[in-house]
Simulated scan of single mutants.
Amino acid sequence: MGFFDLKAICAVCDGEAGLHRYRIANKEWVCPTCYKKAGSSLKKFIAKATADEIREAIAKTSNNSTELDHFKATKKIGTLVEFDDYQKKWLVLSEILGRRNRSIVYRYEDILDFELLDDGESIASGGQGRAPINGGYFSHTGTMAGGLTGKRRTRGVCNSLQIKVTMNDINDPVVYIHFLKNAKSKRDEMVYRSLFEQAQECVSTFQVICDRENNQKPLTETAFSVADEIKKFKELLDDGIITEEEFHKKKLELLR
């Protein structure tokens, strides 16, 4: 009995897997429809994916479609990157015509670090918990000044200019933004200078986002911690374990 004579059930949807099915972990099968719904995040290692992981990927893809519908760009950089600062989300546009129909929506808080790569060489980097990029500083427009020029390569032609963003996502930990990909461009020409300025603006924007996230997290955690402590002492007061004077004294100590 050959492969095409065997009937198989999709481990995800319980429907017939069909002839063009895919083998997954635990010697199970997934149908082409579920495979497609799972999106691109699992396709590289579909043979090792479990049915639960595929269900999770399908739910994530469906949720991303909803987020795309509600995404409202407040900042655009060329035809490559968009930011929704109200919802604190961002996305990379399709390299073809700058469309967002297949884009993945990412959250600001999941950005761990990033690098600007010129022909594979890191010329600027930053991220959460890190100092401003290569000693550079931000102007009032949010664009980084200084720190980049000295690190740029001196070779006359550039083949690749991209930003590598590391995300807090075990299934999709790296996002690339390609400003120049497999195309030679002279560094003294307008095309390269324009793309480099866009990359510089994008790097600066990421650092501003990370700085804001760094500033917000400790404050939020502290606020919750103090509120919880005050609540505990209020309960002790209500139970008659401490006096009102002791409660107010402890409250003032916590709020300082």
Rank of each mutant, 00 (worst) to 15 (best):
Gly2Ile: 05
Asp5Gln: 06
Ile9Gly: 08
Val12Pro: 10
Glu16Gln: 08
His20Tyr: 10
Arg23Gly: 09
Ile24Gly: 03
Ile24Asn: 01
Ile24His: 00
Glu28His: 04
Cys31Val: 10
Tyr35Arg: 06
Lys36Tyr: 13
Lys36Ser: 15
Lys37Leu: 15
Ala38Arg: 04
Lys43Asp: 08
Lys44Asn: 12
Lys44Arg: 15
Phe45His: 15
Ala47Gln: 15
Lys48Tyr: 12
Lys48Phe: 13
Lys48Leu: 11
Thr50His: 08
Ala51Asn: 11
Glu53Ala: 10
Ile54Val: 10
Asn64Glu: 03
Phe71Gln: 06
Ala73Ser: 11
Ala73Trp: 04
Lys76Phe: 02
Thr79Glu: 14
Leu80Met: 01
Phe83Lys: 03
Asp85Pro: 01
Asp85Gly: 05
Lys88Arg: 15
Leu91Asn: 06
Val92Glu: 09
Glu95Ser: 13
Gly98Asn: 12
Arg100Cys: 09
Val105Trp: 00
Val105His: 05
Asp113Phe: 13
Glu115Tyr: 14
Ile123His: 11
Ala124Asp: 12
Gly126Thr: 08
Gly126Leu: 10
Gly127Ala: 00
Gln128Pro: 00
Ala131His: 09
Tyr137Asn: 03
Thr141Gln: 10
Met144Gln: 07
Gly146Ala: 02
Gly147Gln: 00
Leu148Gly: 05
Leu148Asn: 01
Leu148Gln: 07
Gly150Arg: 01
Lys151Thr: 00
Arg152Cys: 07
Arg155Phe: 06
Asn159Glu: 13
Gln162Ile: 13
Gln162Phe: 10
Ile163Met: 10
Lys164Glu: 08
Val165Ala: 05
Thr166Ser: 13
Asn171Cys: 11
Pro173Arg: 13
Ile177Leu: 06
Phe179Lys: 12
Asn182Lys: 11
Lys184Leu: 07
Ser194Gly: 14
Ser194Met: 11
Phe196Asp: 15
Glu201Cys: 07
Glu201Ser: 09
Val203Leu: 14
Ser204Thr: 00
Thr205Asp: 02
Gln207Asp: 11
Glu213Ser: 01
Glu213His: 04
Glu213Ala: 07
Asn215Gln: 03
Asn215Trp: 02
Lys217Val: 03
Pro218Tyr: 14
Glu221Ile: 10
Thr222Leu: 13
Phe224Glu: 14
Ser225Met: 15
Asp228Gly: 14
Glu229Asn: 03
Ile230His: 11
Ile230Thr: 12
Ile230Val: 15
Ile230Ala: 12
Leu236Glu: 15
Glu244Gln: 11
Phe247Asn: 08
Phe247Gly: 01
Phe247Trp: 02
Lys249Gly: 02
Lys250Met: 02
Lys250Cys: 01
Glu253Cys: 06
Leu254Asn: 06
Arg256Tyr: 06
